[in-house]
Nucleic acid binder design. Structure first.
Lengths: 204, 204
DNA sequence: GACCGATACGAACGTTCGTGCTATTGTCCG
DNA sequence: CGGACAATAGCACGAACGTTCGTATCGGTC
């Protein structure tokens, strides 16, 4: 990998950390350059526009997300185990120290939801992929016989997302130490509603 | 009411509408003044600092929220009816046209969750009040015999908040027209988990 | 009719924003 | 060892930021 690509990666790492705290718009080329001991123009040359930087920050974070949340969970068996792995890694991602401001997609979603443009379009695409992945995971659980077929996969995905968002809110903003435990409780109750009862499972 | 207070109200109305779209930080004195056909300095004199403006915007929105969501729901009977009223009015508040960018507290929460200062402190206070109000509403339902006593009121509040946040996300950012119906479904399932079974209710 | 506080204005402050140029440094291949 | 090209820095730009200042226009009080 060339030197340029290396520093670009380095920049994107710091940029996503910064953006998780101050938002994609609050992320500023000047402060980003300072915190990397680079010149504004030297950094800027890598992206040629702030918009391009923002989009690449999103992509960078998405790759990290897939690598540390999605991919590891795929090695679990379909059904409750895989969903539980997804959920726990999702929690850890939000609370992790890579992104000091918590999940950057939560911040970006609230920030961009009414500001049309390429960045918003890109975010929507990434978020829809994740939402679809959640729904697909549920459907695979149905195929495996562990989840009820008479429950909407999209409903499941939206509910799961809500548990996560509420955790983020109570934990990040309100600094409520009980947020994680409540989120786990909500998750287990959601799971209990969608897993097929044990006796019916035995029939198949 | 003096003329000054009148224009101040007028300013805060426009300011909260603007902030719901671009955030409390994206809210700019220049553009706010322009959209009100005022001069920057004339507007600024009402608040003497941007921080003061932001805090007053939050208070202004909180008053509206109490008036259009909380207060009307208090006329419903304790228990499921009141909670349902709260939820439905909450949904309507987020989708309403007063705040074109959706609930300003959702936006501000994600924006300020890692930016210490008086504005964040103020937001936390307001959000905690709302969270406590939700928990209290649940406890009143328990006292009235409609809700289970062996369920945490805080858990209920966090879950409800999650349903709302997921609705906001899918509806605002993703423009998913099915978001509201899914949110109602999630709400009814949550309710079904916490209301005391009919036969036990009859016993008391 | 003179004074006054409240309200609003235009102009300007210093700073930071994103974005161009131009030059200099560094790296790698022949 | 030298020449090509990628990578970074220096500097400047116009615009926008929050904020301050001096001033003009009021309605109301002595």
């Amino acid at each position: 990998m060339s030197k340029g690509s290396l520093t670009r990666e380095h920049i994107l790492g710091e940029a996503s950390a910064l953006a998780s705290r101050v938002g994609l718009d609050g992320l500023t080329i000047g402060t980003l350059a300072d915190s990397l001991n680079m010149s504004k123009s030297g950094l800027f040359a890598h992206f040629r526009s702030k918009e391009a930087l923002q989009i690449q920050v999103l992509d960078h974070a998405a790759e990290r997300f897939v690598a540390s949340v999605v991919r590891p969970a795929l090695s679990e068996r379909r059904g409750a185990a895989r969903v539980r792995a997804l959920f726990e890694r999702w929690l850890a991602w939000d609370a992790g120290n890579q992104l000091p401001g918590g999940c950057i997609f939560v911040a970006a979603s609230a920030e961009l939801d009414d500001q049309p443009g390429p960045v918003r379009d890109h975010l929507i695409r990434l978020q829809q992929q994740w939402y679809d992945a959640l729904a697909t995971t549920y459907r695979h659980g149905v195929e495996a016989g562990s989840f009820r077929a008479d429950f909407s996969a999209e409903e499941f995905a939206q509910d799961l997302y809500g548990i996560m968002l509420a955790y983020h809110h109570r934990s990040r903003l309100m600094r409520d130490p009980a947020a994680a435990e409540r989120a786990r409780g909500a998750f287990e109750r959601l799971l209990a509603q969608v897993v097929v009862p044990a006796r019916e499972e035995a029939h198949e």
